[in-house]
């Protein structure tokens, strides 16, 4: 009975939105890359780099928003690396993406150890505090869940609208979609496929970087090794689940967040009977089930993972 009552508590949904926030950024970022035809498996490493660089900037005295900007720039730079390797050079997107993840992660760990050679407890910063929205935050249940979050969470929701508007309503968004569906047709229209794809990967990677920075600047206040814990890979599953649409991706991320928050609470409830690892496994199992469930009904970008070389058919 208690297990069902939890579902109607404001704290569950507040936690769901909080857990979903980095995933929303990451999923939107991956979505932009994939709509332009580029799979970005660098996401796990790029989110780690965003988490680390944003946190390090704030630790060294920068403003929190400056930290977010640093995370975005670092993300975009790694996106540029991935973009150059897979777009004009046409390298395998799988292998390059894994390589970018390995490189970004190991660079973070290297610089972390370089900056803090002998720390036993990780150094802390003052993270973003919740910003209750006047009036709206007073609504029962919905208020605490949606309108007592930290500013980055609000930014995540704004980004969903912005990305949807950009992809569906602007000429540049159309260009991004065209190079992801039919690059030859885009070329014929005078669109530079290479630059649009690289630009999309950079923009998407910047969002991934911001998503990573949410972990260290808003959810926690320090940087740990392995703290990304597969969130990037879950974002890739969420893109498929959301059928490459920002709105549905948001829905997927929030559902995922709710599920994750729910399993954390069930863990406290049934922890004595069922091993805690079982609950930690559920989000990953859920992602795989979602992929199977969605696999038959999605229309993925036609040119996804197909390198485009001028004059080659």
């Amino acid at each position: 009975m208690e297990a069902i009552e939890i579902l109607f508590t404001a704290s569950l949904w507040a936690a769901a939105i909080r857990i979903a926030s980095p995933l929303i950024f990451g999923t939107l970022g991956e979505l932009i890359c994939e709509r332009a035809g580029v799979l970005n498996l660098g996401i796990e490493g790029i989110m780690t780099a965003g988490a680390f660089s944003g946190w390090l900037a704030v630790y060294m005295g920068a403003d929190l928003w400056f930290g977010v900007a640093v995370a975005a720039i670092v993300g975009a730079t790694l996106g540029l690396l991935h973009g150059v390797l897979v777009v004009p050079l046409g390298l395998s997107q799988h292998v390059t993406g894994i390589g970018v993840t390995l490189l970004a992660t190991s660079l973070c760990y290297y610089f972390y150890r370089l900056a803090f050679p002998e720390v036993t407890s990780p150094p802390k910063i003052d993270p973003f505090q919740p910003w209750p929205v006047p009036v709206l935050s007073e609504i029962p249940v919905l208020g605490p869940a949606l309108f007592q979050q930290t500013p980055l969470t609000y930014l995540a929701f704004v980004m969903v609208v912005l990305v949807a508007w950009f992809l569906e309503r602007t000429p540049l968004g159309l260009a991004v979609r065209t190079v992801g569906e039919n690059p030859a047709a885009a070329e014929a229209q005078g669109i530079n496929v290479t630059w649009v794809r690289i630009g999309a990967v950079m923009a998407g990677s910047a969002l991934m970087g911001i998503g990573g920075s949410f972990i260290t600047l808003s959810a926690f206040n320090s940087f740990f090794f392995d703290m990304m814990n597969g969130r990037g890979w879950i974002c890739i599953a969420l893109v498929v689940f959301g059928a490459w649409r920002p709105g549905k991706a948001l829905l997927g991320a929030v559902l995922f967040g709710a599920f994750d928050a729910y399993q954390l609470r069930l863990q406290q409830l049934a922890g004595a009977v069922v091993p805690y690892q079982f609950f930690l496994m559920l989000p990953f199992v859920l992602s795989i089930l979602a992929l199977i469930f969605m696999s038959r009904r999605v229309a993925y970008p036609r040119a996804l993972m197909v390198p485009y070389r001028k004059g080659e058919r």
């Binding site: 890979w233 879950i234 890739i236 498929v240 690892q277 496994m281 990953f284 992602s287 795989i288 992929l291």
Partner: peptide, 22 residues
């Protein structure tokens, strides 16, 4: 089902590690 094996094999790494821990 046409599910991309990159994502499923990656996610399985986490599931299996938790399973081993269990």
């Amino acid at each position: 089902f046409g599910v991309d094996e990159v994502v499923t094999t990656l996610l399985l790494n986490f599931i299996v590690l938790l399973f081993v821990s269990m």
